[in-house]
């Protein structure tokens, strides 16, 4: 099964997303940006669900930059999952290469169908 990385500092959100996606994908979890990057290097997930605001050295957008600027990971799908619902936030993420933007509380159905459509 392909790997999916869920990077969010809220354990409950990670758990919910794991349950939501765990049947079709192998789930990896990370609770901060640095761990997320480490996991991406190690497992090469096909998609990353990335919280924007995470504690530690790197926030979600910085992780996004790192993924999209590296030729080896550039094609990894990245969906931002965030409580920041401003249009400008979304545009910023899209400008930096995010493939999708889910605002918390997100619809699990939307997440699942986005995954399904983009990971054919």
């Amino acid at each position: 099964m392909p790997y999916i990385l869920i990077a969010d500092d809220h354990a409950d959100i990670r758990r919910l997303l794991s349950i939501t996606l765990g049947k079709q994908y192998e789930i990896i979890e990370a609770d901060n940006g640095t761990a997320a990057l480490y996991a991406i290097g190690k497992y090469r997930p096909v998609a990353v669900l990335l919280d924007v605001m995470m504690p530690g050295e790197m926030d979600g957008l910085q992780v996004l930059d790192a993924i999209k600027s590296n030729a080896a990971t550039r094609n990894t799908l990245v969906a931002m999952v965030t409580a920041r619902g401003q249009q400008s936030d979304r545009e910023e993420a899209e400008r930096r290469g995010a493939d999708a933007y889910f605002i918390k509380p997100f619809s699990p159905l939307q997440v699942v169908s986005w995954m399904r459509e983009n990971l054919k």
């Binding site: 354990a11 192998e26 789930i27 990896i28 979890e29 990370a30 609770d31 997320a36």
Partner: peptide, 15 residues
């Protein structure tokens, strides 16, 4: 399921 980093419990702010 793999957990890459130790998981901190969500604070009450997030309730």
């Amino acid at each position: 399921m793999k957990t890459v980093a130790p998981v901190a419990s969500a604070g009450s702010d997030d309730a």
